[in-house]
């Protein structure tokens, strides 16, 4: 534990809470121990006492939204097994918020304002943001258009489109990123819990990621509101997990029911440790 890092994190936490309070958000505490940890194929939960440590507070916060609250946030610990590196720890702090009636552009505005508040609290210069699409960013770095290119053209390896796309993304696209960046319109196959729409050239997920100096800070969704489609995506992620020799995630029926009752909502999960580390210019999220 380094005093400098503890101090910065404490100041950033206070700044976040100030910003949410000033913008009409209610702080929620949802359970850390949950019956269903995630829906995505590539998340490894940690089991604890016949339940799981949450990989994010997403499911519980959506139930809060379905119960009628319009602006909610939670800051708390989340757990993802097998993720260890300078920018990954098995236990990390997530800052997640949901706002009914908001579009993805509104959430980008909020990220800008909130990062501004945190940067000022830390005494560092607030970044200025660029907004771009996956197609733009990908083709700037690789010369390839992911809406047209095949998996083979992307990586030259016999693998799925998503794996080839992400291999190039982490090898060539992320390392080329500078400054603060919103990247929207992801391949529809990487939608997770976001709505999908037809964009010019290909179907895309209504989803954006925020990056600071090449570090992925946050992921936002225009939330899926269709319980039938939600159940189908659960099943499809679980089928992929079974095929890869991983245990399927238990299906969260309460979430599926809540998805059907939610109004139009956008939500975002921001890695608190990464935000502070990237703003302060640290080389890792270690405490």
């Amino acid at each position: 534990m380094r005093a400098e890092r503890c101090r910065a994190r404490g100041r950033a936490l206070a700044a976040l809470r100030r910003w949410f309070e000033a913008h009409g958000y209610l702080e929620i505490q949802t359970p850390v121990l949950v019956p269903s940890p995630a829906m995505e194929e590539h998340l490894s939960p940690i089991e604890a006492g016949g339940a799981f440590l949450r990989t994010s507070p997403e499911f519980a916060l959506k139930r809060v939204i379905a119960a009628g609250l319009g602006r909610v946030y939670e800051i708390g610990p989340c757990f993802r097994d097998r993720e260890i590196g300078p920018w990954h720890r098995r236990e990390f702090t997530m800052c997640e918020w949901y706002r009914t009636g908001a579009e993805l552009g509104d959430l980008m505005d909020e990220v800008e304002a909130l990062v501004d508040e945190v940067a000022r609290a830390l005494g560092v210069r607030p970044p200025s943001w660029r907004r771009a699409t996956v197609r733009e960013i990908f083709s700037e770095a690789t010369g390839l258009d992911p809406a047209i290119a095949s998996a083979d053209e992307l990586s030259g390896i016999d693998e799925s489109f998503d794996d080839a796309f992400l291999r190039r993304w982490v090898s060539d696209v992320e390392p080329a990123m500078r400054g603060a960046l919103f990247v929207s319109d992801w391949p529809a196959s990487q939608a997770a819990l976001a709505q999908v729409r037809q964009a010019p050239g290909w179907p895309v997920a209504c989803r954006f990621e925020a990056y600071l100096h090449g570090v992925e800070l946050a992921n936002a969704f225009l939330e899926l509101l269709d319980p039938v489609e939600q159940r189908r995506r659960f099943a499809s992620a679980n089928a992929a997990r079974l095929a890869a020799g991983e245990p399927p995630h238990p299906v969260d029926e309460a979430l599926i029911e809540a998805v059907g009752r939610m109004p139009r909502t956008s939500g975002i999960a921001l890695g608190f440790d990464r935000l502070v580390a990237a703003l302060c210019g640290w080389d890792s999220i270690a405490p």
Binding site: R82, E83, I84, H88, L166, S171, Q190, E209, N219
Partner: peptide, 10 residues
């Protein structure tokens, strides 16, 4: 170690 938010780890 890198892991995009919605995908495989690399």
């Amino acid at each position: 170690f890198v892991k995009p938010g919605k995908g495989q780890a690399f």
